[in-house]
Design a protein around this nucleic acid. Structure first.
Length: 767
RNA sequence: GCUGGAGUGGCGGAAUUGGUAUACGCGCUAGUCUUAGGAACUAGUGCCGCAAGGCUUAGGAGUUCAAGUCUCCUCUCCAGCACCA
């Protein structure tokens, strides 16, 4: 018999599946229910690493299993092709981002094929193609029309060295992830998406979703909804008749009588007005300048309660008319709540520290009812959020152009739909110099004037790449449509997504953004579901053999291509699935462990020689049952363990039936698609094993005639009893008590009670 | 600090959900084969003990005939948020 030659077998079947379009998925197949299984598509980095294998080949097991259970399964793949990784790599190599990206995608498609995953490549989606970003722009226009897009000046992360805005996720501990410079906050006008309008729904709709508690909590945490009161304090200056009002947000209106001062954030708009009135103008101005220069890192790390009193200004407590001093301090954040707080040192730790530092009074007055006092002082019960609107402007080249043009007066206008896709120009030097690269495109400016008239200029910013990925799962459903982002019929066939497996790092970014996007589309009646993912599950990470995250600098990277060459795609797939439950933990790579599963595959291979006449093994049906249950719970590790147990048992027998062997192949097919297909084929089967049905459990085979149960005395295991499963409680008790071992221990005592759990245990209670 | 999650052999992890703890794999030990290294195969392998036996699911208490599993306290680790009023 030929030995298991993975190199030959992997390639042979990958080609055969491709030639026969085995995984091409139709929107509707009579008699089959649809199942949409989604995994996060990847950046075209041109290098498929172990993480990709874990992210794609393990969920492929589930997709294949579902197909064998009779579902019409969509398991698509594509590329999140715009964005920083491509642009950075291109800049570094002096290459064109587009050329570089397309080269990487070509490489990755080849690597992805080596996985033997059941992707339907005919539905591939690439976000940097005009055919795709046309619809990203179209949706942007729709949102603009419905006031979900606006332009505003906000604080952004700015890297002074790279002269560019950084996304939040590119700021690592206050420094630029690329060059390590300390990031500063800077005011910048940008295009914003009104995600905060959806804050309540993004929190409340989580309740109905079948998602893990941890993911829901992380999103709630991130949105940070806080319920409280907004209360207005009047400010006055004894030397003039001017009056100002300042609203504060508090969750503790009940402490209103304990207020001994009011604090504004240094950036609070009112401060600019008040500054002319204060007695210590210089001091205040110096403080404002100092805090604005403070690096984000410092402000985060130093919890020192600095501040300056606005001398001469007094706030009037609406509850009792008492005059209290007004301060500015940078422990009050401008962009949370109203940017102003009432200082209650008795009941708030930070206020207490501030009061102590600056010698402000700390008074203990009785608490009142929050709702009542809020009403009494003319305040309102309100909610505030940590979540802020999503700034999507990027001063970069490699992204979806924001489809906006400005008239000669500087007013913004959307690029009409008939001019979409609003193409990304190519006549651009993409080296970052602090100005958007598109500003240097002659073609873009000429195009704008040609279409809109003299003096019109284009928007020169591009969109955050997270915008592209908010809706990619709709495009898989109808990826060639050029009259709509997807036809309603295709969306009805597949949405909402049945299973979305991905990384925990996307919980508060991509997953939240795409939920928002879907809700916005839903409100515009463009889609029929307000939530995109029925089930979301987070997988873990594959760590290096040293237990650290794989990285080139640590020298602990396992290259999947090497494993595929040496041991085969099936071994790698199987090992990744065998490491532990798919949902939950991170697992270190064990170079010996991967050899262990290869041995298992070889045993399955050799078992073919044992096919012959014989008796059915009851173990097979227990195995089918076990795997069917565990696979549904994404516990692929115990599925493989169950197959190993079966193979261990079969190795001890002289012969196995061919039907039993093919049942094992069917169970193993989702895990090791290449080897099982080869064995299936050599046994004379004509159709692909991957078009076959999942084996059924013969319930009658599950019933054991005899069973070994444990005999405990006072809860401690003392003996074992082999007994018929049809034995009555009385029979079991009698036999247990008759055991010599039990006799010896029970003899000189009184048996108080005997608990018999048939098929499980006997516990004899003695005194 | 707040929120969530987790602690089981030398390692990754099992445990029918309250019923024989340590399945399966790795590693380790011995043996067979091999010039050797490796690979493969066979047997053993929770800990202490020569043994009888005792102990064991981070630690401590509790409920129960019975606890890895339920309850309370303590400790440790991981993740997210964090001067969020």
């Amino acid at each position: 018999m030929e030995s298991y030659d993975h190199l030959k077998i992997d390639k042979k079947w990958q080609k055969a599946w491709e030639d026969s379009n085995l995984y091409e998925t139709k929107d509707n197949v009579p008699g089959k229910e649809n199942f949409y299984s989604l995994v996060e598509f990847s950046y075209p980095s041109g290098n498929l690493h172990t993480g990709h294998w874990y992210a794609f080949s393990v969920p492929d097991i589930f997709a294949r299993y579902k197909r064998m259970r009779g579902y019409n399964v969509l398991y698509p793949m594509g590329f999140d092709a715009f964005g920083l990784p491509a642009e950075n790599a291109a800049i570094k190599l002096g290459a064109d981002p587009k050329v570089w990206t397309y080269e990487q995608m070509d490489k990755m498609r080849i690597q992805l094929r080596s996985m033997g995953a059941s992707f339907d490549w005919s539905r591939e989606v690439v976000t940097c193609t005009p055919e795709y970003y046309k619809w990203t722009q179209w949706m942007f226009n729709q949102f603009l029309k419905h006031d979900l897009v606006y332009r505003d000046i906000t604080m952004v992360n700015w890297c002074p060295k790279d002269q560019t805005i950084l996304a939040n996720e590119q700021v690592v501990d206050g420094t630029c992830e690329r060059c390590g410079s300390e990031v500063v906050q800077r005011e910048q006008q940008q295009w914003m998406l009104r995600i905060t309008k959806y804050a309540d729904r993004l929190v409340d709709d989580l309740d109905a979703l079948e998602w893990p508690h941890a993911i829901k909590e992380a999103q709630k945490n991130w949105i940070g909804r806080s319920e409280g009161s907004e209360i207005t304090f009047e400010l006055k200056n004894p030397h003039s008749s001017d009056l100002w009002k300042v609203a504060v947000f508090t969750t503790r209106a009940d402490t209103l009588f304990g207020v001994t001062y009011v604090v504004l954030a240094p950036e609070h708009p009112l401060v600019k007005e008040l500054i002319a009135e204060v007695e210590n103008k210089n001091e205040v101005e110096v403080y404002i300048t100092q805090t604005s220069k403070k690096l984000e890192l410092e402000r985060q790390q130093s919890k020192e309660k600095t501040g300056v009193e606005l001398q001469g200004i007094k706030a009037i407590n609406p509850a009792n008319g008492e005059e209290v001093p007004v301060w500015i301090a940078d422990y009050v954040l401008a962009n949370y709540g109203t940017g102003a707080v009432m200082g209650v040192p008795m009941h708030d730790e930070r206020d207490h520290e501030f009061a102590q530092t600056h010698g402000l009074p700390i008074v203990d007055l009785p608490l009142v009812d929050s709702a009542e006092i809020t009403k009494k002082v003319g305040g309102t019960m309100t909610k505030t959020y940590r979540l802020r609107d999503w700034g999507i402007s990027r001063q970069r080249y490699w992204g979806t152009p924001i489809p906006i043009v400005y008239d000669p007066e500087g007013n913004a206008h959307p690029v009409p739909d008939e001019h979409l896709p609003w193409l990304l120009p190519t006549d651009v030097d993409h080296t970052p110099d602090g100005t958007p690269p598109l500003a240097r495109s002659k073609e873009l400016f000429e195009r704008t004037e040609k279409i809109f008239g003299n003096g019109w200029v284009p928007e020169v910013e591009t969109m955050d790449a997270f915008v592209d990925s908010t809706w990619y799962f709709y495009r898989y459903l109808d990826n060639k449509n050029n009259t709509a982002f997807a036809a309603k019929g295709s969306m009805d066939a597949w949405m909402p997504i049945d299973l979305y497996m991905g990384g925990a790092e996307h919980t508060t970014m991509h997953v939240l953004y795409s939920r928002f996007w879907t809700k916005a589309l839903f409100d515009l009646k463009l889609v029929t579901d307000s939530e995109p993912y029925t089930v979301r599950r987070n997988r873990g990470l594959i760590l290096g053999p040293d237990g650290n995250k794989m990285s080139k600098s640590k020298g602990n990277v396992i290259n999947p291509d090497d494993i595929v060459d040496r041991l085969g795609a099936d071994t790698l797939r199987l090992y990744l699935a065998f490491m532990g439950p798919y949902i939950g933990s991170n697992y270190p790579w064990d170079p010996n462990g991967v050899v262990g599963v290869r041995r298992f595959l070889e045993r399955v291979w050799k078992l073919k020689e044992k096919i012959g006449e014989g008796k059915t093994t009851p173990q097979l049906h227990k195995t089918i049952k076990k795997i069917t249950e565990d696979i549904e719970a994404y516990k692929f590790n115990t599925c493989i363990a169950a197959m190993m147990i079966l193979v261990n048992e079969w190795e001890k027998t002289t012969a196995i039936l061919q039907t039993e062997y093919t049942d094992l192949l069917l169970l193993l097919a989702p895990f090791a698609p290449h080897m099982t297909e080869e064995l299936w084929n050599t046994l004379g089967q004509k159709d692909s094993i991957h078009l076959s049905s999942w084996p059924t459990v013969d319930e009658s085979q599950l019933i054991d005639e005899m069973r070994t149960i444990g005999i405990q005395i006072n809860g401690k295991l003392r003996a074992e009893l082999r007994i018929s499963t049809s034995a009555t409680k009385e029979e079991i008790e009698a036999e247990a008590l008759a055991l010599p071992k039990v006799q010896g221990l029970v003899q000189s005592t009184t048996v108080a009670k005997v608990i018999v759990v048939p098929g499980r245990i006997v516990n004899i209670v003695i005194h």
